[in-house]
Design a protein around this nucleic acid. Structure first.
Lengths: 235, 235
DNA sequence: CTTGACACTGAACATTTGTTCTGTTATTAT
DNA sequence: ATAATAACAGAACAAATGTTCAGTGTCAAG
């Protein structure tokens, strides 16, 4: 006679909740005895009895004869919890911290970080979903700058916006690049076209006219823009 | 004489990479012997020796006399991995999928999703780092629209940009809102100010003049802009 | 050439840990 | 009242596991 109806008993739920809590605090799973200690189950065989049932119901995976060989698949609410094994795979793949290395202002060459990021401070990164970034780009080639001043308006970029750059000093047609113009002492963000021996720098604002540079050598490409982020707050 | 310079040796890196791989495949850490088996280290005391160094350099935490008591803090590339132990808790809190519910074009009222999101398709969401969104906003009040056409240029928003909106039909001074203007059959994005009985709609582009609406009743607020994202690709 | 520190070895040992076994108790259906 | 099953208990045991120890080998500095 089946007393146990399908579903989780209070004891099951208690064990699952303990698993989640322990994992999040320790970074590794608890032992059978630790589970028993924290769920008022005095016997390791009862813990084993319940873990076997949780495995049958696909809340966990177990590995035989392996200490702490428990992999949490679902929470007690049955929710879509990322489990520990996919979180390693997915976290660094889904959310990246792009280092915010300084400001971009019109009257100065913009900062370009050195390749070793020795100055890197994780607290000053900009968090960006990987899915918003170009698929093939290496994360270590990316950095962020905050725009300072109204000088990038023709690039449709506001004071305070964040631009995510990819390191490059070679532009291809149609790419938006950061360019230092030697003759104007000016950094600008424009779409780059090399045409008939001269450079056309096309503003993002389609109502504005391009800059034509007859001597491509005065164009100094400092990076390529891959993403613009504008957080709107009121003044 | 210090032969080991600061930083990771090839053996350290091999161990860290193995830790990441093992964790992602199993959901629990490897034992000392498993690490040795997969990194061609024949002696458990050498594995222990290297793990102690990785702990000193804050790549891992260890728990004494606990089997598989290793918590991975950083990957071999250093720094870009969120703390693994908080990742179980925090992934869904750090990266959110904001539903992309349609397009915003000037000549139509913009789509505003119903409150229950019953149509919601996770594959069509825009991934956004939580840290880029206003701290107090409820995620279920947010949705994204893709801009279609050049009509939002005065808002410094390009064709193809994504705007993340918060549901509201009341604007406060200084907020950027999406407004349907009945008399013009037009949606516009502007900073909103209610002044002396009339509404001033201020473009984001500071070189452009505001729209003054004497009759506030024709202003229909459809949502508030919280974030603009522009993915740059070449044409 | 000597010295000292780092890297490494293999074994021993103690502890941790999971599984199994032999039961008892509680609960429900007949 | 009885039977069957689930839930539980404690102990034993073997295996897994981490730490320690007494060494050896390598290499750069002095």
């Amino acid at each position: 006679m089946a007393r146990r109806r399908e579903g989780l008993s209070p004891r099951h739920k208690k064990i699952l909740t303990f698993l989640e809590t322990f994992l999040s605090e320790h970074g590794y799973p608890p032992s059978i005895r630790e589970i028993g200690d924290h769920t008022q189950i005095s016997s390791t065989s009862v813990v084993n009895y319940y873990l076997n049932q949780l495995e049958e119901m696909n809340y966990i995976e177990r590995e035989s004869n392996v200490s702490r060989g428990i992999n949490l698949l679902k929470t007690s609410s049955g929710g879509l919890l990322q489990n520990l094994k996919t979180s390693v795979n997915n976290l660094s793949e889904q959310l990246v911290s792009v280092p915010l290395v300084g400001n971009i202002v019109a009257g100065e060459p913009m900062p370009v970080p050195a390749s070793d990021f020795s100055y890197y401070d994780p607290d000053s990164g900009i968090d960006v979903a990987r899915s918003l970034l170009p698929a093939g780009d290496r994360l270590e080639d990316l950095y962020a700058l905050r725009v300072h001043g109204d000088s990038m308006i023709d690039a449709m970029v506001n004071d305070g916006d964040i631009v995510v750059m990819k390191k490059t000093n070679q532009a291809h047609n149609g790419e938006m690049v950061a360019i230092w113009l030697n003759d104007r002492d000016e950094t600008t963000l424009k779409y780059f076209y090399l045409e008939n021996g001269h450079v056309r720098l096309q503003p993002a604002n389609p109502t504005m006219k391009p800059i034509i540079i007859n001597d491509p050598s005065i164009v100094e490409v400092q990076g390529k823009v891959v993403l613009v982020i504008r957080q709107i707050s009121h003044d």
